[in-house]
């Protein structure tokens, strides 16, 4: 098991490295003019040269990359501006380290995503199991029908409607508000609960039918028949035998879908007005604040890789065979 974890961590790190290289190439090899953007309206050529020198933009690209990567690990000194590790660069627009900005936004996004995963895993598995149990019955049809309906509407439309009706017009659910879990765990929980329930419920619709199919498939497996022939009760079979096998493919799907769900989190932040990484990225797009966008992408990659790692480890716990292949 230890070797398996180590191997997965190594794999995750290599993916991360590739993501950093790709990000650097996309953002800093392209035809961009960060110095111009930073210089502002009253700009003189001298000043541009000065800024480029400060930011190291006059150096060869390979050297810039080394500096960038070194910054991530050990921190940098960007023309007198101290940037502590992990240094994600310097925001031209706000004139402060990108890391500071990300540091504020990161917990917001992670809170939304983790809470969402908890909600949609629970709901997806629960309703999937219920639908499988009552296959062909009205309850099954209702669950499948609702999940189909929900998945057929774009997420941002649903989010807008929810925001407008549930939060603004009727005030059924208090507006979302983020407080750090470290400051006050209770308000952190209550402030985000509405978001989690909404985000989680909508995403769970994707999984309900999947879990249902998986559970039905498991019901027909030979080992379920074996369990029955041992004299086990139906409840024991459902929980200890069927569920464990039915969940395995769901975990795989969970790992694959993390990136897409991060996208959902961006909409969520934007629409519900939470200052997470999604909003940070969108604001930076408006101001062409390249280092910030790049920083968000790198940190996003970190989130995806870590969640995938988590899913892999969970999978390893569920299915003993994966350690070998």
């Amino acid at each position: 098991m230890l070797v398996y974890i180590l191997r997965r961590v190594l794999l995750g790190l290599s993916v991360l490295l590739a993501a950093i290289v790709a990000t650097f190439c996309i953002f800093f090899l392209g035809p961009s003019d960060p110095a111009g953007a930073l210089c502002g309206r009253q700009c003189t050529p001298d000043r541009i040269v000065q800024i480029e020198k400060d930011l190291g933009l006059n150096k060869p690209k390979t050297e810039q990359f080394v500096t960038y990567t070194k910054g991530l690990v050990a921190g940098n000194d960007l023309g007198g501006k101290k940037c502590d590790a992990p240094c994600l660069g310097w925001s031209y627009v706000q004139n402060r380290p990108v890391t500071d900005m990300v540091k504020q936004a990161f917990p917001v996004t992670v809170s939304i995503v983790i809470g969402g995963i908890v909600v949609y895993s629970t709901l997806g598995i629960l309703f999937g199991m219920i639908a499988a149990r009552f296959r062909g019955k009205p309850l099954d049809r209702v669950i499948v029908g609702v999940s189909q309906f929900v998945t057929s509407i774009p997420y941002f439309v649903l989010a807008q409607l929810f925001f407008l009706y549930a939060m603004v017009y009727y005030g059924l659910i208090p507006r979302a508000k983020y407080t750090s879990i470290l400051d006050n765990p209770f308000t952190w929980f209550t402030g985000l609960l509405g978001i989690w329930l909404f985000y989680g419920t909508v995403l769970s619709a994707n999984y309900v039918r999947y879990v249902r199919a998986s559970m039905i498939d498991v019901q027909n497996q030979d080992y379920i028949r074996t369990a029955r022939s041992k004299g086990l009760g139906e409840r024991k079979i459902a929980i200890s035998h069927a569920l464990r096998a039915g969940i395995a493919p769901f975990l795989t799907l969970l790992g694959l879908a993390v990136a897409a769900e991060l996208g959902g989190a961006i909409f969520t932040e934007r629409i519900f007005g939470l200052q997470g990484m999604g909003n940070l990225a969108l604001t930076s797009f408006d101001t062409s604040d390249l280092p910030v966008i790049a920083g968000v992408v790198v940190v996003g990659a970190v989130i995806i890789v870590s969640l995938n790692l988590l899913v892999d480890l969970l999978y390893g716990l569920v299915d003993p065979r994966v350690k070998l292949s």
Binding site: V3, L6, R7, L10, K323, L324, S325
Partner: peptide, 16 residues
């Protein structure tokens, strides 16, 4: 005559 077929298989027991 002397027909041989070897398949490469990857094994993941170690770190690599």
């Amino acid at each position: 005559t002397d027909l041989v077929k070897h398949y490469p298989v990857k094994e993941y027991t170690g770190l690599f």
